[in-house]
Design a protein around this nucleic acid. Structure first.
Lengths: 105, 105
DNA sequence: CAGCATCCTATAAGATACTG
DNA sequence: CAGTATCTTATAGGATGCTG
């Protein structure tokens, strides 16, 4: 893939969040940490693989923190980092637009 | 592609705007109508084909208005519709996040 | 100028099976 | 429970050539 030339900030943001699921995942983390399978239940359409990959990408970007609890069986949860909290306005505004879209039909 | 089951509004919004370019295109229309080749210049990375397809999709969604001026050679411009103006907060917030992303590195 | 047509590659995403 | 591995399909996106 070609690297961004313009370096436009919207372009940068969309390259990180532009996927089908990432912002949706974030939207399910705004109210607090969630476990892997809880996220799966929130998003019936996502495959396990995509959820894993997107969570890894968000983790890599420092927006999501993955925590493994040393229980048996293992328990993992995902939470927004302080950086990730910066996505809250993005989620809010996107949700509002999405709602309007659905009402408009 | 599987149709959304949850009907979540964020998901709906991202299915419309989630591509690499669409929101960026919109961001270049917030200050007024633009012609096709002006948009191309704004986005050196986009192919002509993608620009056309994304503009058509935005037009189909009623967010962008395409106007053909009966000149020679033909002149076409694209503008946000009144519905499309609802994307302004989305663009604004995404730009802000992108700026922060770039500064953070 | 503003495309369309065709062909091609890259990336995203899903299905299924298996595991510590 | 929370994944990984592998294979496959779908979608996005790009390159090039041509046109009214």
């Amino acid at each position: 893939m070609k690297v961004s030339v313009s370096g436009c900030s919207v372009e940068e943001a969309m390259r990180l969040l532009g996927g089908r699921w990432r912002l949706l995942i974030v939207s399910y983390l705004v109210d607090g940490p969630k476990r892997f399978n809880a996220l799966r239940r929130d998003m019936p359409g996502i495959s396990q693989r995509s959820l894993t990959l997107d969570l890894r990408a968000l983790e890599e970007s420092g927006l999501v923190q993955r925590t493994v609890w040393p229980t048996a069986p293992v328990r993992v949860d995902y939470a927004l980092t302080q950086d990730g909290e910066r996505l809250k306005p993005v989620v809010a505004v996107m949700k509002e637009f999405g709602l309007w879209l659905k009402e408009r039909g």
